[in-house]
Structure formats: C-alpha cells, structure tokens
C-alpha cells in the first residue's frame, strides 16, 4: 500500500547515510592528520554540516513539508527565520540538558556545544523538515498514537534511536580503561551517530514489516 513511500524513505535514508560517510572520509583524505578521535570537533562539524545540508535539500525536493496555507514570500521567509530560531533554541536546550547530565560547565563548553549542535542536526532538523516550526505538531508526533503518516513514524524511530544512542554513549565514560574514545564527548557523539545510522536503517525496515498493522487516523 505504501510501497512507494517506503521506497522513497529508503532512498532518502541511503543518501543521508552516504553523506555521513562522505563527511567522514573526505576530511580524512583532504586534511592531513585527521582522525575521528584526534580531530573530533572537526569531524563533528563536518558531519553535522553534511547532514544538515543534505537533509534540507532532500526533504525540500521530496516536498514532504506540510503544505503552507499562504504562498506569499513574507510568510515563507518568516517560516525560514522561525526554523533557524528553533534550530538555535534546540542547540541551547540540548546544551543545557547535557550540562545537567553532568558535563563540565565551563572547561569544555565548546565540546559540549558541538555535541548539542550534532544532536540538533540529527533530530531537531528532521522535525523542522518534516513538520515545520510547529510545536503543537511536535508534541503530537511524540505522544502515544500520535503519528499521522509514515514519515511521522519514521521521525519517531530515528529521533528515539539517536537520543538513546547518545544516552548509552555516556555509560563507558566513568570506566577506568583510559581509551581514546572515552574522552568527553567522543563516546556520546559516536553513540548518537551510531544510533542515528541504526535509526536510518531500522525505520524503513520496521515500517515495511509492520505495514499491515499501521493505521493512521488522518490518512
């Protein structure tokens, strides 16, 4: 029934995943001495930049964003401005949450903020692309039985996977193994990244296998 949508979703995810891959490989070729642990911030920025650009482009081309009522330029502009504002607010929100979880407040503020930028570009950006700057819709999607389309379910899965990945990534930090990936925030960002990639794979697969059970109210 939704074969078409699932295919579109799978290809979108493939494009995004390959962009992540490219964002890791390209700096390794171009920048001398680049490694995921060593130049971690660089890797963070390149990955979040790539994910941001590619997902905005892909979702805009696909046209999943809910149709706007007005087509005036001013309205569209205000939507873009609000999206940017939301993006920034979400960075701050993640930063606060991570600090509350026990990240150093002042010492490595830059690292913490980079992590929150990564988390934002992996989660909030997708919400912005799929749902638009509409908090009510976000709350709806993230409550029980709130998904109204395949894309909503997909959004739920990827966001949950990313956050759980980042959450699990914090566990090895107190262990006394002295490994390079235990340094703050390497394990968390790696966890988030792995969770995101898992989500990208898992969402279409899950929807494909559960397509019989999935019924949406408004579709």
């Amino acid at each position: 029934m939704w074969d078409h949508e699932i295919k579109a979703m799978a290809s979108t995810h493939a494009i995004i995943a390959s962009s992540v891959f490219m964002a890791t490989v390209l700096p390794a070729v171009l920048v001398p001495g680049f490694s995921v642990y060593g130049a971690h911030l660089l890797w963070l920025y390149s990955v979040s930049g790539a994910v941001t650009v590619v997902s905005v482009a892909v979702f805009w081309l696909l046209g999943i964003t809910p149709p706007t009522k007005k087509h005036t330029l001013g309205y569209k502009l205000s939507r873009v401005v609000r999206s940017c504002l939301y993006f920034f607010l979400s960075c701050l929100f993640f930063h606060t949450v991570v600090v509350l979880y026990g990240a150093p407040l002042i010492e490595s503020a830059l690292e913490t903020f980079s992590l929150s930028v990564l988390l934002t570009s992996l989660t909030t950006l997708r919400c912005l692309c799929v749902l638009g700057p509409n908090v009510q819709a976000w709350i709806r999607v993230f409550s029980r039985h709130g998904a109204m389309s395949v894309w909503d379910t997909c959004l739920q899965i990827t966001v949950a996977c990313t956050l759980v990945g980042a959450w699990l990534g914090a566990f090895p930090i107190p262990l006394d193994w002295d490994r390079p990936w235990q340094v703050w925030p390497v394990s968390c960002s790696l966890g988030a990244m792995i969770g995101y990639l898992t989500g990208l794979v898992a969402a279409p697969a899950w929807i494909h296998y559960h397509r019989k059970q999935l019924t949406y109210k408004c579709k």
């Binding site: 709350i139 709806r140 914090a170 107190p174």
Partner: peptide, 29 residues
C-alpha cells in the same frame, strides 16, 4: 553517577509526559 544519570533521564521523561498531557492540542477527532 549512575543514579544522577538515571534521575536526570527520569526528569526528562516526566517532562515529556507533562508536555504531552497538559499541552497537547485538543483537536483530535
């Protein structure tokens, strides 16, 4: 650290629950 971590997560989940139950728009059919 384990307990602080769990406590924070608990607060976040409760926060989400509050958002959902108090602030969700009542336009469902």
């Amino acid at each position: 650290q384990t307990w602080y971590f769990l406590l924070n997560t608990l607060c976040l989940v409760v926060f989400q629950d509050v958002c959902r139950k108090y602030f969700r728009e009542q336009r469902g059919p």
